[in-house]
Amino acid sequence: MADTLSGKVAIVTGSSTGIGAAIVRELSSRGAHTVITYESPAQKAAADVLATSLPTPATAVLADMSQIEAPKQLVEVALANWKRIDILVNCVGVAVNKPFEEQTLEDWDLLVNLNGRGTFLMTQAVLPHLTKNTGRIINIASTIDAGTKGMIESFTKCWARELPPKYGCTVNSVSPGPPRTGSFAAAGEEQMKILQPIIDQTPVGARMVEPDEIAYAVAFLAEERARWMNGVHLVASGGLFID
């Protein structure tokens, strides 16, 4: 892979495992330095292994994105290490796998604070430091979550109009189809029984999307030659979900 992102610095939230980790690996393979974030001490080992296995410099940071101080902390780490921020990937997210009737106020607060507020505050924290005229903001939305991840799609549309004239950046989103990740598998057998018939209808192939396939879509939007891609909602679902 050519070093098309050589010298760029990327913050990827929620990136110790799964889709976030795949995005870090893809960006690093193109030459980017990366800030890897993990949500709890239990994820530290995975984040450290990822950071040391990359071809470019990276640092792993404990940052609970449901807490309001986390975005500022990540910005400070990026600037202290590399004195610049070029790419922000808002990947962190959580799902509550319960029937609607069983969901609690605590569940709601977790979803909104992490998925919604975390993305909102992280983007605000990065903007003053985002490299002028070449910055990239990429939000990971979802094809199967109409709640807080739907909020991310709305953020993307609004920010894509408002922010580029001020910062020269682009703002786009990527929505994965059902992904083959550990967190998704943790939804349990019953969830998969419901989902499998839907997956079987995927035109390109009756399977879940692999994390590296999502990472490739993100890296494409991060490239300098994607400078005219703005306000795009890129759906990587094998044609399962077509607008």
Results as ranks from 00 to 15, higher is better:
residue 158 C to S: 15
residue 19 I to D: 02
residue 215 A to S: 09
residue 30 R to L: 14
residue 209 V to G: 04
residue 97 N to T: 10
residue 16 S to Y: 08
residue 102 E to C: 07
residue 147 G to Y: 11
residue 152 I to N: 00
residue 19 I to E: 01
residue 68 I to C: 07
residue 215 A to I: 07
residue 152 I to L: 13
residue 185 A to H: 14
residue 227 R to I: 10
residue 99 P to V: 09
residue 59 T to M: 11
residue 196 Q to H: 07
residue 106 E to H: 08
residue 220 F to H: 13
residue 148 T to K: 05
residue 89 V to I: 11
residue 211 P to W: 04
residue 235 V to T: 12
residue 166 K to E: 15
residue 15 S to F: 08
residue 230 N to E: 08
residue 15 S to T: 03
residue 182 G to P: 03
residue 113 N to V: 04
residue 38 Y to P: 07
residue 221 L to G: 02
residue 180 R to I: 05
residue 98 K to I: 03
residue 5 L to S: 02
residue 125 A to S: 04
residue 59 T to W: 11
residue 225 R to N: 15
residue 194 I to G: 13
residue 97 N to W: 14
residue 191 Q to E: 14
residue 5 L to I: 06
residue 122 M to N: 04
residue 182 G to W: 11
residue 165 P to Q: 11
residue 132 K to R: 15
residue 105 L to T: 12
residue 12 V to C: 03
residue 126 V to F: 02
residue 110 L to W: 07
residue 166 K to P: 09
residue 126 V to A: 05
residue 93 G to L: 06
residue 222 A to R: 01
residue 55 P to S: 13
residue 148 T to Y: 07
residue 58 A to Y: 04
residue 234 L to F: 11
residue 113 N to L: 10
residue 172 N to A: 10
residue 35 V to A: 02
residue 8 K to Y: 06
residue 234 L to Y: 10
residue 148 T to G: 01
residue 141 A to T: 01
residue 88 L to Q: 00
residue 218 V to F: 01
residue 78 A to T: 09
residue 44 K to I: 04
residue 12 V to G: 00
residue 148 T to R: 04
residue 168 G to C: 09
residue 200 D to M: 02
residue 42 A to T: 13
residue 32 A to N: 07
residue 38 Y to A: 10
residue 34 T to H: 05
residue 209 V to A: 06
residue 234 L to H: 02
residue 109 D to S: 12
residue 94 V to N: 01
residue 30 R to E: 14
residue 99 P to C: 11
residue 184 F to P: 04
residue 98 K to L: 12
residue 156 T to Q: 10
residue 226 A to V: 02
residue 197 P to D: 13
residue 138 I to Q: 05
residue 35 V to K: 00
residue 195 L to T: 02
residue 160 A to G: 00
residue 186 A to C: 08
residue 240 L to D: 03
residue 189 E to H: 13
residue 77 V to Y: 06
residue 166 K to V: 11
residue 126 V to K: 02
residue 9 V to D: 04
residue 193 K to H: 13
residue 76 E to T: 08
residue 203 P to Q: 13
residue 100 F to H: 12
residue 213 E to H: 09
residue 24 V to P: 03
residue 209 V to K: 00
residue 3 D to Y: 13
residue 119 T to S: 13
residue 25 R to A: 09
residue 218 V to R: 00
residue 123 T to G: 04
residue 243 D to S: 14
residue 42 A to M: 13
residue 152 I to D: 06
residue 89 V to H: 01
residue 108 W to V: 01
residue 193 K to P: 08
residue 39 E to T: 07
residue 235 V to W: 02
residue 8 K to L: 10
residue 8 K to E: 05
residue 225 R to Y: 14
residue 233 H to L: 12
residue 135 G to D: 08
residue 96 V to L: 09
residue 130 L to H: 01
residue 143 T to K: 08
residue 17 T to F: 06
residue 82 W to S: 05
residue 234 L to D: 00
